[in-house]
């Protein structure tokens, strides 16, 4: 089942399904949010926002609002 990246808790590994249509779509894709990419949520800033995720060995931070645009699915570990 698809969920948005903002709902994923720390240390969970997920896979990108797609990015919702928005003006930020291209930018999110450029940062590696492309279909099939596996991500791990690393940690959150105080108050739970922004969040930091691992994308193929580099750490990307993004706000909750941006994370909501990224659709992901759970990987069965």
């Amino acid at each position: 089942m698809n969920r948005s990246l903002s709902e994923i808790s720390n240390d969970q590994q997920v896979q990108v399904v797609g990015v919702l249509q928005s003006s930020l779509k291209v930018k999110l894709m450029e940062m590696g949010m492309v279909k099939g990419k596996s991500l791990t949520v690393l940690y959150r800033a105080p108050l739970g926002d922004p969040i930091a995720i691992d994308v193929d060995g580099y750490v990307l931070s993004l706000r909750k609002d941006e994370a909501k645009l990224v659709e992901v699915e759970q990987i069965n570990a």
């Binding site: 003006s23 930018k27 999110l28 940062m31 990307l60 931070s61 993004l62 706000r63 609002d65 941006e66």
Partner: peptide, 11 residues
């Protein structure tokens, strides 16, 4: 009208 955003690599 625009929404601010933050996409930042943590090196």
């Amino acid at each position: 009208k625009e929404q601010g955003f933050l996409l930042l690599e943590l090196p």
